[in-house]
Amino acid sequence: MNTYTEPERRAFALGQAVGLGFIQPLSLMRPGSVGRILTVSGSSVSDRDVERGLLEMGFVEGACVEVLHHGFWRRDPLAVRINQTMTVALRRCEASAVLVGPLLDSAMSATSASNRERDPS
């Protein structure tokens, strides 16, 4: 007798995970941190065009992201590397529409690649 819809269940699960600190919006990630996109858009950004814009620039569920830089004033905007190929600048406000979780096993190659880069030895 489950009365919850699928999106509601998912939101609930997400809320639990955020509470545990595994999941955070892209806007709060520090330079150098990596993760995998869980959801794009939803509640925080009402504008559907932002969601589409983010999707078109490669912020899609499942993509690996790495925050490279913050702007010099108020740490805005952010420069984010997507899937090790394309770097995109976006503002904190839009970045909050992207929820990022940890990189798990399948993404080890991406993490190790960026680690290798940071530490050439």
Binding site: V50, T87, V88, A89, L90, C93
Partner: peptide, 8 residues
């Protein structure tokens, strides 16, 4: 405020 989404 319009979003900034720009490829570097």
């Amino acid at each position: 405020r319009q979003p900034l989404l720009m490829e570097l």
